[in-house]
Design a protein around this nucleic acid. Structure first.
Length: 596
RNA sequence: GCGCCAGUAGCUCAGCUGGAUAGAGCAACUGCCUUCUAAGUAGUAGGUCAUAGGUUCGAAUCCUAUCUGGCGUACCA
């Protein structure tokens, strides 16, 4: 990786300067050396600010440190080394190095940007389970779930790219109060359908909206009870069927949304089965460890001793376990299967964090193994007015409806581009426009443009110089496919092509070419960074930026032209751009169209 | 009240492990299609980075306080 290489060279230079006593009173070398992309391209290709950072400890002026380092940098891969401002070291990379680095994109191709397992940023874990959505199987998925779905699936892919063994998991919350409510709702709806109950008799106060129940009554799964006497059909029977229907519907729409789960973990089947259930076991364990106690018929976790603001109930006076108790059993189960856990939660659940973290710590687990990513709400506006969503009244926009309106790519991009900490205001009018205002097209178009150029190199072109009376002339492609293929295969090491081809660029061409190359070479670093903070949105930002740089390059640099070397050098950048955009979009689960 | 999150251009948001002149997109205005897709691009205009202090060579970024908004504060999930 380019950045790593530069970092090593700077580190060596730093070590030599230290040996020679040029670093004042500095005694030890810093752990890391930041290699940045300067904001202003006139400041070179890479910038290093380490001299300023060391100046205090060394007790000498930053420029003196910078000069000492610069003197040891050598000229092998840098065509220019400048010291500027208070003590920045600005590096200009030579064309051969850039050519060599771009060639790496060709040899790695589909895997360019992928971090090897041994190079992963955080060595404290290798396997990681990302749990997300985890909705109750009692209705359709709403936009909040949608946000979790796209972020979670992108995060799993991102983590895999960054060298981790990641898997996705959906916790099916199919036990407890909500399921009882679903069962009652379903049974009453069935009775209404059979004419044995008046609609006015529906317990709308305590049940799910009747309208939502009616919608699932036509599912063929109800055949199971069709021939039975309804008086012998229990609410439980109905609840099971309703749950299956909702679960299947959720699975289907999640798949449409580009989200796959390795594991569907049923709370009911995994945590509440057997003589001694997993939940029983964990409560027993907590009692024995003295971190739980009985009081007024309920079982409490001593959460206050572990950082929470109050103690938490594990088992209610009615004998049922709380969500927390089951969740703890679930987390312990996950911890036995993976080094690291990441949970995606709606921000409205943040109050539970101290309880879960505290309990895991109390149980002797390392709380650092659990990372909880909070996602703020998604709200809807239509023409500037907020659309109130309420599950109770059935007035909410579902994932299904939105995808139908805007398409999966736009849906994913909209929900992925901003960071989880920010609320998303989803403008229905804007999203349904489905035109160029939609940012996803900007990135996809850049990719399609790359493909178009590569296609034009080999495809037969219609010559547009149409003369009156003449038929259209058809010109052969510039290269045959075999030639292009051969060229790509040969492009695996520096041959001095860039230094010859890019020698006489005008300022705009030089600037746009350089900027594109540097951005392309930064991709692996972007993957590493984004994964380290569990932030797929950073990849979305990066590819948007890359798309912009490609469009600028395209505007200033005619790819197909008479200068064979210049053309080849530019083709390599078009092909490299195509590969990086494709890989980046792939991480986000967004398609990379070849034509638009 | 207490806790969490946010406040950057008219709107939607980047930039936040401190770095050089705070950036995009949309909206407004002016240009660029007989040449690889104009779903593009070049430019103009638009900012007390919520406010006030502090930390230091340097703060949108870190600390403290205040203001505004969202969320949470259950023997619900």
């Amino acid at each position: 990786m380019l950045k790593q290489r530069i970092e090593n060279i700077v580190r060596d230079a730093l070590a030599k300067s230290l040996e020679q006593g040029k670093l004042g009173q500095l005694e030890t070398l810093p752990d890391s050396v930041a290699v940045d992309l300067p904001k202003n391209p006139e400041h070179g290709d890479k910038a290093i600010s380490i001299a300023m950072k060391l100046s205090k400890e060394a007790k000498i002026a930053p420029r003196m440190i910078a000069e000492a380092i610069a003197a040891e940098l050598g000229s092998e891969i840098f065509s220019k080394v400048d010291i500027a401002g208070p003590g920045f070291i600005n590096l200009t990379l030579n064309w051969d190095l850039l050519e060599e680095s771009i060639a790496e994109i060709f040899s790695l191709d589909l895997d360019y940007g992928r971090i090897a397992k041994n190079d992963r940023a955080d060595k404290s874990f290798e396997t990681v389970i990302v749990e997300y959505v985890s909705a109750n199987p009692t209705g359709d998925l709403h936009l909040g779930h949608g946000r979790q779905a796209v972020l979670g699936s992108a995060l799993v892919d991102l983590l895999r790219w960054a060298g981790y063994d990641a898997s996705s998991e959906f916790y099916i919350n199919d036990a407890g109060v909500q399921m009882g409510k679903l069962a009652a709702s379903a049974r009453q709806a069935i009775l209404i359908k059979a004419g044995e109950l008046e609609e006015s008799g529906y317990d709308a106060e305590n049940n799910y909206p009747l309208a939502a129940m009616k919608e699932i009554l036509f599912d063929e799964k109800w055949q199971a009870i069709d021939n039975q006497d309804l008086s012998s059909v229990t609410a439980d029977d109905c609840g099971k069927i309703a749950k299956e229907i909702f679960l299947e519907s959720q699975k289907e729409i999640l798949k449409v949304a580009g989200t796959e789960f390795e594991c569907w973990y049923s709370e009911l089947e995994n945590l509440h089965q057997g003589e001694t259930t997993k939940v029983d076991a964990i409560c027993q364990k907590m009692l024995e460890a003295g971190i739980a106690y009985e009081n007024e018929g309920a079982l409490w976790f001593k959460a206050t001793e572990f950082g929470d603001e109050r103690d938490r109930v594990l088992r209610k006076t009615d004998g049922y376990y709380t969500y927390l108790a089951a969740d703890l059993a679930y987390h312990q189960d996950k911890l036995s299967r993976s080094d690291k856990l990441i949970n995606l939660w709606g921000a409205d659940h943040h109050g539970q964090i101290p309880g879960v973290m505290g309990a895991l710590e109390a149980l002797g687990e390392d709380p650092k193994r659990l990372e909880i990513v909070l996602m703020q709400m998604v709200s809807l506006t239509k023409g500037g007015e907020e659309v109130k969503m309420s599950k109770r009244t059935g007035n909410f926009v579902t994932v299904r409806e939105l995808i139908e309106e805007v398409g999966v790519d736009a849906f994913r991009y909209f929900l992925l581009e901003s960071q989880p900490n920010n609320r998303i205001v989803f403008d229905l009018e804007l999203a349904t426009k489905q035109d160029k205002d939609n940012p996803v097209y900007y990135v996809q178009y850049a990719h399609a443009r790359c493909c178009g150029i590569l296609r034009n190199l080999t495809e037969k072109q219609v010559d547009q110089t149409e003369l009156p009376g003449n038929t259209l002339a058809v010109a052969d492609g510039i290269m045959t496919e075999a030639e292009l293929d051969h060229y790509f295969k040969a492009f695996t090491s520096a041959t001095g092509l860039y230094s010859r081809a890019f020698a006489n660029l005008n300022p705009e061409q030089h600037k746009s070419t350089k900027a594109l190359i540097l951005a392309l070479l930064n991709f692996p670093e972007e993957v590493k960074d984004a994964a380290a903070s569990y932030s797929p949105y950073k990849i979305a930002n990066y590819i948007k930026e890359l798309a912009a740089l490609f469009h600028q390059f395209y505007t200033h640099n005619r790819v197909i032209n008479d200068d064979a070397e210049l053309m080849k050098a530019r083709i390599s950048l078009v092909a490299a751009s195509q590969k990086v955009l494709r890989n980046g979009l792939g991480i986000l689960g967004i398609t990379a169209p070849e034509r638009m």
